[in-house]
Design a protein around this nucleic acid. Structure first.
Lengths: 337, 337
DNA sequence: CTGTTAGCGCCTTCAC
DNA sequence: GTGAAGGCGCTAACAG
């Protein structure tokens, strides 16, 4: 490993090239006119010395760094991975760099604090702007713009991208009810997120539109995680009058529900139908495939990045809230009664 | 959103609190003695103004930032996710911050360049040290330490953590051969990585130890990705004399192989036995469970972080190469002939 | 215990 | 075209 004793600075380059630091700075930034031969000269020295300008120093002088920050609660979560994919795509396209921060396993309170900490640590100093996925915190103080993906219920004043959760669930409920299901269980999401609230509402309204009363026993409080989904489904299936279908607020919950069903010796879709929300890649891999509501996750990441870049460039947004249309994807996890 | 017009600096705080900037700096860093009442005073102002010191400025002055950088080629890969989990655990324990960079879909050449770029961008300026997972590049020029997880074959001079790949594969081969398998296919990993080289060698030597000749047709060049594993397995199973067992250089390859087998109407383990390497969580979820070699991935991440922290603190390492012992985990994906 | 003074590495006027 | 000088926000001596 070529471990250099002391970092090579713009000074070193200038000295080696026999020019002043301003000239080096100029060739670095491709601004102002530099004599072609001087340019080549300096470039050669830079390459030879393996010089790279210090992000720290650079960002201190000029407000733009070209790097975007991303805060995700859990890198292991498929939803969040998909969002990252979309962001990565956009990052490449907009010629930015991406730095991501990810918390560990924290309580809701602790993650909110970590999010705030990271925003104030990075934003405006190292980072031109940040994207926060499913924020636990509901306010951030930051010089630079912040965009949320699937925002917290209490920070609707941030620019954000969110799916048409309500409409999506409604469509899926109609499908389920059309199949003849009347007792439909629901595994909720992280209640502090708008998506979770909207999906729950869609569930209730879907029932009501069909004239089916809402049974509180059929609504289990989840948190978008697979294990929790499994536990919720277990309770649902253990009810005196168990549901014939289960709606997971996201695919992870639904997958957990399927696991619970199998563990209880129940077949999907033969004994219980299951529907999810998200359309993560796993949903298609499964056997049978999971019927779910596609919310085009990676596109959400892309759009969020696009919005953030506009804000960074000082442009205005067409709309502060981008609503990603959803689409029901029917696979094999449901059957008609 | 509380968007502040201009970032509040240490100056603003000092002025508001009626003290000098050094005093503010002192309370910030909890160093030197500050009168308790002054301390409280300043803390109050800091909180009220929502002040956060600029990482950029801070890291420019003092060589320590407390943040560790991580470069992972693909955040969507389960192996890498597990490594990150381990790193996160260590980060919390050592009271550091973690910033991760992840490339998009690049060619090998391009990712090597991106890795180098990021190391020089961050290391020594924003970051105290970096961990590189499965590096494509084989050299980095950096002031601050770099530790690799599953290193490139050509940079064995970096501190690194790697599993006992050779021994692990050997053990699995003995198991397979003990089951009566003689024609065993092999799906290789990313050939530039030491792990891939060692695993291939283990495969060959395992065969030879049992007196089974190595058939080149049975060795397919993979790249640790599921899709590639699937394609390789398809070729293997299409051979005039197909293998009765397939060894995937990692679990992703093995899972891809299982998919390919199913697509070809073959049952696992009834028609083909499959073994993987890694023991990613998915391996246990599958049905049947995947027999694989556990390399305690998250522990690798933990150890790498531990090593890096020592290096950052100027301590010496007991050994430059930490070898994580592996362990065969037998599940249901193999059967005896 | 607290304030003053140098820079850290870089970009940006302003002269030449 | 190029160099010199100032300062970004902060910490680390050095005085008091």
């Amino acid at each position: 490993m070529k471990r250099i004793k002391r970092a090579v600075t713009i000074h070193d380059v200038a000295r080696a090239a026999g020019v002043s630091i301003s000239t080096v700075s100029r060739v670095l930034n491709n601004k102002d006119y530099v004599a072609p031969e001087t340019y080549e000269q300096v470039q050669a020295v830079i390459k030879e010395m393996g010089y790279a300008s210090s992000l720290a120093a650079r960002s201190m002088r000029s407000r733009k760094t070209g790097v975007i920050g991303l805060v995700v609660p859990d890198v292991g979560d498929p939803f969040q991975i998909q969002v990252m994919r979309g962001i990565n795509r956009a990052i490449a396209e907009f010629d930015r760099d991406l730095i991501v921060y990810t918390g560990g396993d924290f309580t809701k309170e602790a993650s909110a604090d970590r999010e705030r900490y990271f925003v104030s640590l990075l934003n405006g100093s190292i980072t031109d702007g940040m994207i926060i996925v499913t924020p636990a915190a509901n306010d951030f103080s930051s010089v630079s713009p912040v965009v949320a993906v699937d925002p917290n219920s209490h920070n609707s004043d941030y620019p954000a991208v969110i799916a048409t959760n309500y409409a999506g669930v409604l469509e899926a409920m109609e499908y389920l009810i059309g199949l003849g299901h009347r007792r439909i269980g629901f595994i909720g999401g992280r209640p502090e997120l708008q998506s979770a609230v909207q999906r729950l509402q869609g569930y209730k309204d879907g029932l009501q539109q069909a004239g089916i009363p809402v049974d509180p026993d059929l609504i289990q409080p989840g948190d978008y995680r697979r294990e929790t989904g499994s536990a919720c489904a277990e309770r649902l299936l253990g009810l005196p009058s168990p549901p014939t279908a289960i709606f997971g607020a996201n695919d992870q919950s639904a997958i957990g529900a399927i696991e619970a069903a199998r563990k209880a010796g129940l077949g999907v879709p033969d004994d219980v139908s299951v529907v999810g929300f998200d359309n993560i890649p796993e949903a298609a891999y499964m056997n049978p495939g999971l019927t779910t509501v596609d919310q085009f996750i990676d596109q959400m990441g892309y759009v969020a990045t696009e919005m953030l870049v506009r804000l960074i460039q000082g442009e205005d947004l067409d709309r502060e809230l981008y609503e990603m249309p959803t689409e029901l994807v029917v696979r094999g996890s449901c059957r008609s009664l």
